[in-house]
Amino acid sequence: MKILLVEDEIHLSDALVYTLKKNNYIVDTAFDGIQGEKMAESEKYNIIILDRMLPLKEGLDVLKNLRKQKITTPVLILTAKDSIKDRIEGLDSGADDYLVKPFSKDELLARLRALGRRQTDSINNEELQIHNLTFNPLRGEIKTDKETIKLSSKESQVFEIMLKNKNMVITKEQLLQKIWGFQATIELNNIEVYISYLRKKLATLNCKVLIETIRGSGYCLKEIN
């Protein structure tokens, strides 16, 4: 499950990222409202954890704009404001849940599980296809008529992006930004490693789908004759 965490308190953000990753969530981070809104608009997340008091753009304004764009991703608001009026304002702005600081990590995880259960049925049915391959992003599985292979979480993210943009060139920088986030320190060479892993797994299926290297540009997922 992929989460967008929008929180400007660096120490809290780092602690939450550690907890979430330890519990097998994939996490992207943003530290202000404008950046968080752009990421929520450009990438699909299962849940958004959104601080209310953010620099550059207030959290509820971000939420309202996302809902106006018909982005229905469940949103959990984090805030130090704990009055009934504040909670009602957050929920009326489109939030799915509201958690007051300070909070326990166990309560946060429980609320995320509850939000995740609401999404499971619709996500389970969202499969992507190319040629004779069917890919389930939630399970990280590629299937053909005869075989099923399992992808790691990062392989799954890379393949999903490429499959949604099949026959289009995707740069290493785009993959880096979408998967590891704007603050990523990972080297671009690591993208090549995951592409190599994917190519080897696709080769085991003996399918007519390949990842082509476009020199000086990036990669392209396409069918071959």
Rank of each mutant, 00 (worst) to 15 (best):
L91S: 14
T134F: 01
D8Y: 07
G216M: 04
L112P: 02
E192G: 05
A114S: 13
E147K: 12
K22S: 12
Y197H: 10
H11D: 09
N132M: 05
P55Q: 15
L20K: 13
S83M: 12
K85L: 14
D28E: 10
L12F: 03
K81P: 08
E147M: 07
L133A: 01
L188Y: 07
M162W: 08
K201H: 00
L4W: 02
N24V: 08
N124A: 09
I191S: 05
L56P: 05
K38H: 06
I161Q: 04
Q183L: 13
M162G: 02
Q129L: 09
A114H: 13
A80K: 13
I48Y: 01
E160S: 14
E173L: 09
W180C: 01
N136A: 08
L16A: 14
S217N: 10
I3Y: 00
I88R: 15
G59W: 04
K21D: 00
K68V: 05
R117M: 15
T19W: 10
G59M: 08
Q177C: 04
M53V: 15
I161L: 11
D92Q: 15
K22Y: 11
E107T: 11
N65S: 13
D97Q: 04
K21I: 09
Y194N: 06
K166P: 02
S42Q: 09
L176V: 00
F182R: 00
L163A: 07
L78C: 11
K150M: 02
Y25K: 03
D8L: 12
I211M: 01
I224K: 11
A15M: 14
E43S: 00
L210C: 02
K164A: 07
R111L: 06
L56T: 14
D92F: 08
Y194E: 06
D97T: 03
S217C: 09
E173W: 04
T204M: 07
F159E: 03
K68T: 05
Y18N: 10
L91I: 14
Q35W: 06
N206G: 12
I191V: 12
S13T: 07
I49T: 15
K154S: 05
D145E: 10
K166I: 09
A95K: 06
I34Q: 09
Y219T: 04
I161C: 08
N125Q: 13
T144S: 09
D96N: 10
K81L: 11
E7F: 12
L16H: 13
N225V: 12
S196K: 13
F103L: 05
S217H: 10
Y18V: 10
N124W: 06
C207D: 03
V27C: 04
L20Q: 11
L163V: 09
E187S: 15
D28C: 02
C207A: 12
V158N: 01
K2P: 00
T213W: 08
C207K: 01
L91W: 14
N189P: 09
N65P: 01
A95Q: 01
K64D: 00
I211C: 02
G59A: 11
L60K: 05
F159S: 07
D51E: 15
F31M: 07
K57N: 04
K146Y: 11
